[in-house]
Amino acid sequence: MAKILVVDDEPDTVDLVKLVLETEGYQTSVAYNGEEALEMIKIDKPDLVLLDIMMPKMDGWAIRKKIIDNEETRDIPIVMLTAKAQPIDKMIGLHVIGVTDYITKPFGRQELIDSVKKAIGE
């Protein structure tokens, strides 16, 4: 099964996402900030990164930049999982920056699962 890295500074959210994905049978790892996330990606080599945007120190976009900048991790799909729910934010994420998917909080279980599946290519 695919390995998914969940990055969010909010433990409750991390737990929920982890629960949902594991229920679906995915292997998950978690990180609560950018540094951890980048470390985990290096160690774990996940198949997908679920990335929150508004985090202290390094925000989601900065983390993504690091991932993209690294040749080894460049091809890992990234799905943004964020409370920035304005249509304009979503549009910028999807079409200007070019992340794989953009899910706004509060998301539905099915919505998350559909997005993950699609991103991994199942």
Partner: peptide, 21 residues
């Protein structure tokens, strides 16, 4: 506020759905 509210709502919604199914 709207951002801050969305975060707890995520947990509420997520767990409720998990409970529902």
């Amino acid at each position: 506020i709207s951002h801050e509210i969305r975060t707890p709502l995520t947990s509420i919604r997520g767990y409720t759905e998990l409970m529902l199914d």
